[in-house]
Amino acid sequence: MCPEHAGYSYAQHKKDLLRRLRRIEGQVRGLQKMIEEDRYCIDILVQISAIKSALHQVGLTILESHTRGCVADALANRDQGDEMVHELMDVIRQFTRA
């Protein structure tokens, strides 16, 4: 987190993010149990898809906060704007890989 941009950081979503991550943790434990119990493959794949989607939403929330805070501020103040955009594009490429 960029501390100087606390008003735009993911900290304002921290409670929700932690709640979502705890839910995801429970889903992963459920997935482990499904495999232990030799559950139907399609049911397991559906659960994996739900977990991936939930994690993706957490990532998008943090990505949006970073873009609206740190990156926007760097561009507005012209300090390290190019560097921040480069860093942002690198992480977007990594984040959107399948």
Score class of each variant (00 low, 15 high):
Pro3Thr: 03
Pro3Glu: 04
Pro3Ile: 01
Ala6Met: 08
Tyr8Trp: 02
Tyr8Val: 00
Ser9Phe: 10
Ser9Ile: 12
Ser9Arg: 09
Tyr10Phe: 15
Ala11Ser: 10
His13Gly: 06
Lys14Trp: 06
Leu21Thr: 08
Leu21Asn: 10
Arg23Lys: 13
Arg23Cys: 03
Gly26Asp: 07
Gly26Thr: 07
Val28Pro: 06
Gly30Glu: 13
Gly30Gln: 11
Met34Ile: 02
Ile35Lys: 05
Glu36His: 12
Glu37Pro: 02
Glu37Ala: 09
Asp38Leu: 02
Arg39Tyr: 01
Tyr40Lys: 02
Tyr40Leu: 01
Cys41Gly: 02
Asp43Leu: 03
Asp43Pro: 06
Ile44Ser: 03
Gln47Thr: 04
Gln47Trp: 06
Gln47Asn: 08
Ile48Gln: 14
Ser53Phe: 01
Ser53Thr: 01
Leu55Gln: 11
His56Asp: 03
His56Gly: 11
His56Asn: 03
Gln57Trp: 05
Gln57Lys: 15
Gln57Ile: 08
Val58Ile: 12
Gly59Met: 13
Gly59Ile: 06
Gly59Pro: 12
Leu60Val: 08
Leu63Thr: 11
Leu63Asp: 07
Leu63Pro: 11
Glu64His: 12
Glu64Leu: 09
His66Ala: 14
His66Ile: 11
Thr67Ala: 14
Arg68Ile: 01
Arg68Asp: 10
Arg68Leu: 07
Arg68Lys: 10
Asp73Leu: 05
Asp73Gly: 07
Leu75His: 04
Ala76Thr: 10
Asn77Cys: 07
Asn77Arg: 05
Asn77Met: 01
Gly81Asp: 07
Asp82Thr: 02
Glu83Tyr: 01
Met84Arg: 15
Met84Phe: 13
Met84Glu: 15
Val85Met: 15
His86Met: 04
His86Tyr: 07
Glu87Ile: 00
Glu87Cys: 00
Leu88Ala: 11
Met89Glu: 10
Asp90Ala: 05
Asp90Val: 01
Asp90Lys: 10
Asp90Leu: 02
Val91His: 13
Ile92Trp: 05
Phe95Gly: 01
Phe95Tyr: 08
Arg97Ser: 04
Ala98Thr: 09
